[in-house]
Amino acid sequence: MSIKKTDSISYLYNEMDPSEQVEFERLLEKNENLLIEVESLRNVSSKLEKLPELSAPQGVIQSVCEEASHKTASSKRMVKKPIYFATAALLTIGFMAGALIYESNESTGNVGAAVIGSSGSTESVQNQVHTPQNSSREITPWVDRNDVLHFSGLDNERSDSLLQNSYQRLTRVNNPSQNSIYQRNLQLTGSRQ
């Protein structure tokens, strides 16, 4: 085993592997100079063990503890602030979402109107319904939120025939991808004039 200068320190401070330690002790028995160095270092090292532990002054410790409690208090305040921000953000999002839904309902209503318009406009439907045969009764068509066409004032038989007639006018959409949403709506519910 070749001796490194730092081996004596590793040995003194128990930082050697057990096998290295055994080997080093064998060398110590053979090499007197090495033994003298190790013992001399051990002697100085043992003097260091007398170094006392010194306590920090009470006032300093007190102020550190106070600082810790202030930090805690301020972090609590910091925690509260995001709650306010989150509440405000939620309210804003809620209002915006409400406004958007309202807007979309409005526009859906318009699309519905357009749907009927494409099949000859609401007026034409009404005209169609107000035939001389039906003049005795008032028939009013209307479109609900889901763009479904309803007729009020019709009995079942007559409404069935009217719907049947309407369905026959519907045309198939051949290539829906080429059209915009509104065009598609028009085509899907459109009818031959």
Binding site: K4, K5, T6, S8, I9, S10, Y13, E15, S40, L41, N43, V44, S45, K47, L48
Partner: peptide, 16 residues
């Protein structure tokens, strides 16, 4: 680690 061990050794030699 060798430098750290070396510094310890020189420290003890200097203290001696």
């Amino acid at each position: 680690i060798n430098t750290a061990l070396g510094r310890m050794r020189y420290a003890l030699i200097n203290l001696r």
